[in-house]
Design a protein around this nucleic acid. Structure first.
Lengths: 119, 119
DNA sequence: AACTTATATGATCAAATATTCATATGGAAG
DNA sequence: CTTCCATATGAATATTTGATCATATAAGTT
């Protein structure tokens, strides 16, 4: 007897579905991947990262460059820090942020290229 | 006289800020870039694309593979279509979806790799 | 033509997330 | 040690967005 627990979908091509199912990556892993993409999927964060790819900047300079409040920038920097995309060093009372590694730069460049090409 | 319209930020290093500002890409363009990333930033859409990278699938098979409702899948396919990431062909009453181009595959593979490496 | 099936879609609801506001923290300068 | 400034952060608000539900469309079947 075949299970048909949740869904009411009728047309399921068993073989193809099972084939693809067996090839799928772990749910958890794909969630992680999409979660990584998500960080780049906000224009504020992307602008921050792009700005930092030009040079290290303190928080208030970032706010000036993006013309946004210090608080908004700070909150987003927190997100970027939590994903290890940016780091910072303290200089006196200021915090200079910079991109964590080349990965980030290449990631941005890649999607910039893709966007240019496709649209 | 220098403008200080919106923000109340004091510490702005004029030169550095202007330097970076001049190097920034168009707001509109960066918004578009982040908008592209955003599509990959949802696990349902990512799973759909990953499944389609294995083979073309009709909507109900996709629903079965992801164990989600036909409606949810259909809505997300619409998003993917609107971004030209997937296409489809009609076969009778069924719609077989497939990835629009190699770009999409390489994009997914890249981020899968990044994720594996970084975390 | 009436009925079933596969897909699409509008409306609604719920959850996630970005920004603002108020305030806290901690270094620098007086 | 008090004040000022750069940054961080919690709470509240606003906006976005994903899933569901109900329904529409359109192709195949009887």
């Amino acid at each position: 007897m075949e299970e048909k627990d949740t869904c009411d979908v009728i047309c399921v091509h068993e073989d193809e579905v099972n084939d693809v199912k067996s090839k799928m990556l772990e749910d958890e892993f794909l969630f992680e991947v999409s979660d990584n993409f998500k960080v780049f999927g906000d224009s504020t964060r992307l602008k921050i990262m792009y700005a930092l790819s030009q040079r290290d900047l303190c928080v208030c300079d970032l706010a000036a460059v993006l013309d946004m409040s210090q608080s908004a920038i700070s909150h987003q920097l927190r997100v970027l820090r939590s994903k290890n995309l940016v780091k910072f060093r303290k200089e006196g009372k200021m915090a200079y942020y910079y991109l964590a590694d080349e990965h980030v730069v290449s990631m941005i460049e890649l999607c910039v290229e893709h966007t240019k090409e496709r649209y």
